[in-house]
Deep mutational scan, measured.
Amino acid sequence: QTVHVKGVQYHFPNPEEAVKFALKVAKDLGGRVEFHGDEIHVE
């Protein structure tokens, strides 16, 4: 599972961890989380 944050990719073997990370980052940055297939983008 890959999380993209402002052009940087973070790889997580566990999808659940990836989602938790993405939600935390989005909250910290005041952004939103978008799901694109296997990828999660924080915009």
Rank of each mutant, 00 (worst) to 15 (best):
G31W: 14
E16R: 09
Q1G: 09
P13Q: 13
H41F: 14
G37W: 05
L23W: 12
E17Y: 06
V3W: 02
P15G: 09
F12C: 06
H4F: 15
D38H: 11
Q9F: 10
I40E: 01
A22Q: 00
G7I: 03
K24C: 14
G37P: 04
Q9A: 13
P15H: 15
L29R: 05
P13K: 13
L23H: 11
Y10E: 00
K20M: 10
N14H: 06
L23E: 12
K27A: 13
V8P: 00
A18L: 02
V19T: 07
H4G: 03
R32T: 11
L29F: 10
P13D: 14
Q9D: 06
I40T: 02
A18W: 02
V3D: 00
F21D: 00
V25E: 04
F21G: 01
Q1T: 15
D28F: 12
Q1V: 15
G37L: 07
E39Y: 08
V5K: 01
G37F: 07
H41W: 14
R32D: 04
K24Y: 06
D38Q: 11
K6M: 14
G31R: 03
E43H: 14
V8T: 09
Q9T: 14
V19A: 07
L29N: 06
V5G: 00
I40C: 05
G37E: 07
V8N: 08
H41N: 04
F35L: 08
E39A: 11
G30C: 11
K6C: 15
H36A: 07
H11P: 04
P13M: 13
E43I: 15
K6W: 13
L29K: 05
A26C: 07
R32H: 11
Q9P: 10
V25L: 13
A26E: 02
K20N: 08
V3P: 01
F21H: 03
V42R: 01
F35M: 09
F21I: 02
L29V: 09
G30N: 11
V33C: 08
E17D: 12
A26L: 04
V19S: 05
V25T: 09
H41I: 10
V5H: 05
V25C: 12
A18P: 00
V3A: 01
I40A: 02
N14A: 05
A22V: 02
V42L: 03
F12I: 02
V3G: 01
N14T: 14
D28T: 12
V8R: 12
A18M: 02
P15I: 15
H41L: 08
V33Q: 01
A22C: 04
Y10Q: 02
F21R: 01
H41E: 03
H36I: 13
E43K: 14
Y10W: 06
Y10R: 03
R32Y: 12
K24H: 08
H4R: 11
V25F: 06
G37N: 09
Y10T: 03
V42Q: 01
D38T: 12
F12K: 01
V3Q: 00
P13T: 13
V5M: 06
G37T: 05
V3E: 00
H11R: 09
P15Y: 15
A22G: 02
F35S: 04
P13L: 12
G30T: 04
K6A: 13
Y10D: 00
V8I: 12
E43G: 08
V19K: 10
V42T: 02
K6D: 14
D38N: 13
I40M: 05
G7Y: 04
K20P: 02
E34D: 07
T2P: 03
V19Y: 15
E16G: 08
A22L: 03
V42N: 01
D38I: 09
Y10I: 05
K27M: 12
F35T: 05
N14K: 05
V3L: 02
E16K: 09
T2S: 07
K27R: 11
L23Y: 14
R32F: 11
H36N: 08
V8H: 09
G37Y: 06
K24N: 09
L23V: 10
Q1Y: 15
F21C: 05
Q1I: 15
G31F: 11
F21K: 01
D28W: 13
E43Q: 12
A18T: 02
A22N: 00
E39G: 14
A22E: 00
Y10N: 02
G30E: 06
V33S: 02
F35C: 10
V5W: 09
V8M: 11
V42M: 02
R32K: 10
G31T: 05
Q9S: 11
Q1E: 04
L23T: 10
A18G: 04
A18V: 00
G30Q: 08
K20S: 08
D28S: 12
G31Q: 04
I40Q: 01
